[in-house]
Nucleic acid binder design. Structure first.
Lengths: 372, 372
DNA sequence: TTTGTTTGTTCGAAGTATAAACAAACTATT
DNA sequence: AATAGTTTGTTTATACTTCGAACAAACAAA
């Protein structure tokens, strides 16, 4: 627990008022006071401070109420008061996105991937200056990587694609920047990106690309597990697998991943897009491949639902674009396999999910750690 | 987020100091000050208040340090400063336990089960007065029930054993008592009871009795899911199940539960204890039954581990007592099925787990909600 | 024009933590 | 034995917070 002092309560109330204005704008000082239970005098003080720092604006007088009384001055949130930088370090590309507080993209650039930290830092600096955003207004940098991350220390535990192992990216990167940096797994980031749309407190995000991974949000928080390895559904097995002697060696590709992912199609000589776009067009072999895929995926989604009771499951990743044809199938199958209701959706954000999610992650962290 | 005012910071620091004394006793005021970053004057003020309310005691002067200096007055936590009441409402019995702040049981009584709230309240009141504990010192009552609970409203959504459905137990029960009441599912309570031993932030608790259920603790918090249904592993299915047309209807017993639980043995005409105590004693049929049980359970534990990366999985419930013979088997199988390490243990707390866990739940809630 | 209501500001009060000053208690050195 | 240096716990003055009351301004309805 945090230590309590006068500074803390000031920060708390400032964050609270700002959040209220952001969510319920336009809103008057008096309404904020009623809503939060803070006195009008306190709200006045806090709002004036926020006005001076340009976090909020006065929008003009509000409507008159029945029964008379002075009109309230409506306050609005300034989305340009802060910016976040999202960096998605992928196997081939590095995507850098800068958004304002409304998550509107103000800058985006794609660079070739590299494991050279100085160069990555240079990419980020370049993007920041190219965007024209005032550096002081950037609240943080979020970085998503396709590997295992110790989010507390900022250490990359394992990232085979770039050859990083037990490498503290945070310590290497932080000296280049004044604002705080936050690093997480790319799937976790993507999940937070999807979540930022509707703020669901309980959801599961599936990323189906050449491999398969997942991220879990429970009680409004990312579930990272004891050693940051939560979500490794590529390792799932079932009785049929064990019957055929399929197990997870540390070297081999996960048992589930071999059957449900883009890789599974490629092993059979097809691309995911090809197979899925030719579903139910007379080719028995293809239909069978898809049926197996849908069945095993649906069973897994049903079990996830029974286990965690998420409000919804979002399916993203490269393959998800082609999944429209079978999504209704999947929904029906899941509903037949568990009595617990769940919404199943395809992801909204496309290839930007990682970078946008990294920003969402950075913002989440700052809000909970520091208030502002 | 909570509103910040002067009262809040007082509460926070008071809770912080008390927690520190409790965990690091014996400890002096100066050490607390250093540890928490609070000034010595603040610590003095807070400690004197805690002394007056008998939450802590002065234990005497500490050892002298090298280099001189006044000896510090060592402070110790008073476990008798607070008591919790745990109520485990089962199908046949109601177990009521009262513990002090060290989780030492000071009173225990078992009553026949009933759905009559007034009678249950009377059981609790009777236990409280019989125990001789000062009512003012009781910080809360925790109640565990074998059914679905809305822990926010206190409503029992479904409890078939007692015929409760959409029944607000909290509203009915609260008028009988001055201290706050908290209600949760019995498996969730048992999980918290097991957790209170070593304070693991990421664990899964399995209750294998006549049925099977689970509770999940992630990021130090109970995962309840979107509609308080998390942990319903009785509904798990796999490809072999679907191949044989086994699905989860709302009426029938869960597919997984039919194969891995006490019920599964009973269906074959055996008791769980009998089967497990006769394992590998020459009876082929029994060996086969157990092997299937162990295999499916291990696969499930491995998948849970891959999915949530818990520090440990604790297996409790009525059947767990007989599981000693196969626990090593299970550990080996799980390790071969997932590359993510996990500790697997049998539960320590026996039939008291529910009631003790209910106290742990109540204490958890009070600490996070109210600080004190 | 008057009355009652609502909004936002100002000011004193109450309460918090903190640093600095201080007294007490102790060790080590001379 | 005396002294210096160190640590502990308390006291005091200060700075800061929120809050309630009082107030003026702005408005609707009678």
């Amino acid at each position: 627990m945090k230590k309590g002092n006068l500074d803390l309560i000031k920060k708390m109330n400032r964050a609270l008022v700002l959040e209220t204005i952001r969510r319920d704008q336009p809103i008057s000082r008096a309404s904020i006071s009623k809503k939060l239970g803070l006195s009008r005098s306190t709200v006045t003080l806090v709002v004036n401070e926020l006005l001076e720092k340009k976090f909020v604006f006065e929008l003009g007088l509000g409507d008159s109420t029945v029964g008379g009384g002075r009109k309230g001055m409506k306050l609005g949130f300034n989305p340009k008061s802060g910016y976040g930088v999202g960096v998605d370090i992928g196997r081939s590309n590095i995507i850098i996105i800068i958004t304002d507080m409304d998550s509107d993209i103000v800058f985006k650039e794609i660079y070739p991937s590299t494991k050279d930290v100085e160069r990555i830092a240079d990419y980020i600096s370049t993007s920041m200056s190219k965007s024209g955003v005032d550096t002081k207004r950037i609240f943080g940098i979020g970085i998503g990587v396709p590997g295992l991350v110790n989010t507390r220390s900022g250490e990359i535990i394992e990232l085979s694609a770039l050859g990083w192992k037990n490498f503290n990216l945070l310590e290497q990167m932080q000296p280049y920047f004044k604002c705080p940096i936050f690093i997480n797994n790319d799937v976790n980031c993507a999940a937070l990106g999807e979540r930022s749309i509707d703020k669901t407190d309980n959801m599961i995000f599936l990323a189906i690309g050449s491999g398969i991974g997942s991220a879990i949000i429970a009680n409004g928080e990312l579930v990272e597990g004891h050693h940051f390895s939560a979500g490794e559904i590529n390792l799932f097995v079932d009785r049929e697998d064990t019957k055929h002697g399929r197990v997870n060696n540390s070297k081999s590709i996960g048992v589930f991943e071999q059957q449900v992912s883009g890789l599974a199609f490629e092993k059979l000589g097809y691309s995911a897009e090809f197979v899925l776009s030719n579903y139910k067009k007379g080719q028995k072999e293809i239909d069978q491949i898809i049926d197996q895929f849908v069945t095993y995926l649906s069973i897994t989604l049903a079990n996830m639902t029974s286990f965690l009771n998420p409000k919804k499951i979002v399916i993203g990743g490269g393959v998800s674009k082609s999944l429209n044809i079978v999504i209704e199938d999947i929904k029906h199958k899941v509903a037949s396999l568990t009595s617990i209701p769940v919404e199943i959706e395809l992801a909204c954000l496309g290839s930007d999910a990682g970078a946008l999610g990294a920003i969402a992650y950075a913002f989440d962290k700052i809000q909970t750690e520091d208030f502002m």
